[in-house]
Computed example of a mutant assay.
Amino acid sequence: MTTVAQESDVRRHELAEFLRSRRERIAPEQVGLPRGSRRRTPGLRREEVAQLSAVGVTWYTWLEQARDIQVSPQVLDAVARSLLLDSSERAHLFALAGAIDPAPNTTCPVITPAVAVMIEQLDPIPACIQNSRYDILAYNRTYGRLLCDLDAVAPEDRNCMLLSYTNEDWRSSVVDLDEMNRVMAAKFRGAMAEHLAEPAWKALLRRLESVSPEFREIWARHEVVGQGGKTKRFHNRDVGPLLLDHTNLWLGPMPGPRLVTYVPANTESRERLERLYALAPATL
């Protein structure tokens, strides 16, 4: 057996053991499956992982048996999501499989100093970093006062969906609130299709449904819209009407974290953003 063949064999066995260990740690309830009274397998069954990943049971069984089979990055991506792998575990999975991750860095738990400086330098243009779940991960001075006083909002509540449906200051600042909420919910549904089993997504959905009848009514329509920018109208309580061009700039492959900016669409809006920046606190 050649050295290359030996390394490939070792990788397959390591991959098989890693998948088995990740599968056995997940309770059925974590991925929306019933436990049942006759379950003896720790964690999930192989057929359940196959079902969640939309792959054949035999194929997934062979994968855990370290068979020499072809594994596409797309299938690995589905398996990683079904097993609720974090970013380190996901990177390990693709490394063992010798495959390139089609969606690396899909989460952005830490904003690097360079990114923080970049959004700060964009002032007085409102800018923030959001993930695909609409969590606001970082923002500059002007964005912090654009729709509400974000500094006064608890970090765990800094989510555009949650604020747009529950925060009165935020809601009163949006001129076309009904349309914005409808489109945002449709975008959220489209993004969630790739995260259906992930606890953070399910928890946010449950929270929105529990606190907002408006969201429940819109969510029941099953509308789906892709990401995109448009001109938006706001009415800031400190500086008045604003007409701003909304733009998304992805920091990596879609649909990962993105830089969201609101560029003034006319001279009046630019001047008002400069006033808002002057009114905003110097530090966040």
Rank of each mutant, 00 (worst) to 15 (best):
P126G: 11
N248C: 03
D77N: 11
C128N: 13
C160H: 03
D151M: 07
R237I: 00
V153K: 05
E24S: 10
E194I: 09
V260M: 05
R275T: 10
R46G: 05
P264I: 08
P104T: 08
N181I: 03
D176K: 07
M180S: 11
E24N: 09
A95R: 12
I69K: 01
C108A: 14
R46E: 00
V55W: 04
R22G: 08
T166H: 06
R216K: 15
N159E: 03
G144H: 02
D245A: 14
A152C: 07
T267Y: 12
H195V: 11
H222P: 01
E17P: 00
C148K: 12
N159M: 02
H246T: 04
L146M: 14
T107L: 10
D68G: 03
W201C: 05
V110F: 09
K202S: 08
S210N: 12
V75D: 07
M180R: 15
D86I: 08
R270G: 15
Y277E: 11
E268D: 15
T3C: 11
E194R: 12
P102Q: 04
E156H: 07
L85R: 07
L147T: 02
P109V: 14
A138E: 01
T247V: 14
E47M: 07
Y262H: 13
V75W: 08
L244D: 11
G252I: 01
R189V: 00
R25Q: 12
S21R: 14
V4N: 03
A282T: 10
L15M: 13
L162V: 06
E47A: 08
N131P: 01
K230V: 13
R46I: 06
L196V: 14
T3W: 13
L52H: 00
H195K: 14
R237V: 00
T106D: 15
A203M: 07
E168S: 15
L204R: 04
A280G: 02
P126V: 11
S210V: 03
L244E: 10
P255W: 02
T261K: 11
I69T: 11
S269C: 09
R23Y: 05
L259Y: 07
M180C: 10
M161Q: 04
M184L: 09
R133H: 05
R22Q: 12
R216N: 14
L83F: 07
V175N: 00
A116H: 01
Q70T: 15
R233M: 03
R233H: 04
L162P: 08
P281R: 07
E214H: 15
E214W: 14
L146V: 06
E214Y: 14
R46W: 02
R133L: 09
P264R: 06
T283S: 13
M161F: 05
E179R: 13
H13I: 12
L177N: 01
A193V: 15
L273H: 07
G32S: 08
R35N: 11
R67S: 05
A66T: 09
V49W: 02
P264K: 04
R12P: 06
S53G: 00
V224M: 10
A91E: 03
A95I: 12
L19N: 00
M118F: 15
V110S: 07
S269G: 10
S87F: 06
T3M: 13
C128F: 11
S87P: 09
L85M: 11
A16T: 06
I129M: 04
D178A: 15
E268S: 14
N140F: 06
L76I: 01
I129L: 01
F94S: 11
P264A: 04
P28F: 04
N131K: 01
P199Q: 10
A114V: 14
A154D: 15
